[in-house]
């Protein structure tokens, strides 16, 4: 209860602010409509109308909740209007991209730690890669891959990997370098090889750093997958829902897709957190 109460307070405060914002932002349209029809509206009439418009500037929370309910529970998951269907499309690209990004990130980090030339050359490129807006590079990746016949989930996964490899590289490099000089000297006195030093000391030492990076990385993967869905002509996925919502002024649909994406991100980070706790506990590193 001690942990739930503060969270609930914040949630309630946000919802109240949200309602106030919805009334304030949608009131203009209500007044214009009333003036056009030559009607006088009471204050309660204005409030009631602002919270039930079809295409509000800012939909009220209950409208978004109703949309979420309709597009998840009340639709079959194979329907093109089901958020579960679109969520799965995005999730599969996210997970594939996360796997590629994590793998690439770990390999790059191992290279950077063990090879001086890579240490000097790769890190600046990795940092530069993250300064390019993903929105600018995503369409090019889609177009280039499409021209060599690669379509479907892979281009999105690659955009997703592009965002998620970076935190893994940074975290793993720091983790693999975390053993101090004394621990390295100790292995030297045993005549341990580079491979043994890596397996027995560097890799286990890096685990806490890796998991912290994975949490950042999986959230970035989801963002990458959604961005990757935007230039494909808004066919499938949460990104497509966002884009088609904005084409047709369906603000309720946009907000429902946003909330779904946020919930998905929270769930993914939560899963990584659980794996982290289980792994570190098995390693005896969690007290």
């Amino acid at each position: 209860m001690n942990r739930i109460l503060p969270v609930l307070t914040v949630v309630v405060a946000l919802i109240v602010l949200w309602y106030l914002g919805a009334v304030a932002m949608n009131a203009q349209w209500t007044r214009d409509q009333a003036a056009r029809a030559g009607q006088e509206l009471s204050f309660t009439g204005i409030v009631a109308d602002t919270l039930s418009q079809d295409r509000p500037k800012l939909p009220a929370p209950h409208q978004v909740a109703a949309e979420l309910w309709q597009t998840t529970v009340q639709k079959s998951i194979t329907s093109k209007r089901s958020l579960v269907y679109h969520g799965w499309v995005t999730l599969s690209a996210t997970l594939l991209g996360f796997a590629i990004g994590t793998g690439a990130g770990i390999l790059l980090a191992v290279g950077i730690v063990h090879n001086r030339a890579m240490d000097m050359s790769v890190m600046p490129w990795a940092i530069a890669s993250q300064t390019i807006p993903i929105l600018a590079i995503a369409p090019m990746i889609i177009v280039v891959l499409n021209s060599i016949g690669i379509q479907g989930v892979l281009p999105k996964a690659i955009i997703s990997a592009y965002l998620s490899f970076f935190p893994v590289v940074v975290g793993m490099v720091k983790g693999l370098r975390s053993p101090d000089a004394m621990q390295l000297d100790l292995l030297k006195t045993y005549g341990a090889s580079g491979g043994e030093t890596f397996r027995k000391l560097r890799l286990p030492s890096s685990m806490p750093y890796l998991f912290t990076s994975l949490k950042v990385g999986i959230a970035a993967s989801l963002v990458g997958a959604i961005v990757g869905e935007l230039p494909t002509g808004a066919v499938r996925g949460l990104g497509a829902r966002l884009l088609s919502g904005s084409y047709y002024g369906q603000t309720v649909q946009i907000w429902a897709a946003l909330i779904a994406a946020a919930a998905l991100a929270a769930a993914l980070v939560g899963v990584v957190g659980l794996i982290q706790r289980a792994t570190l506990k098995r390693m005896g590193m969690e007290r």
């Binding site: 004394m182 621990q183 390693m283 590193m285």
Partner: peptide
């Protein structure tokens, strides 16, 4: 060494 330097995961 001066510090025990035991691996916390072992």
């Amino acid at each position: 060494f001066q510090a025990a330097g035991l691996y916390p995961w072992r």
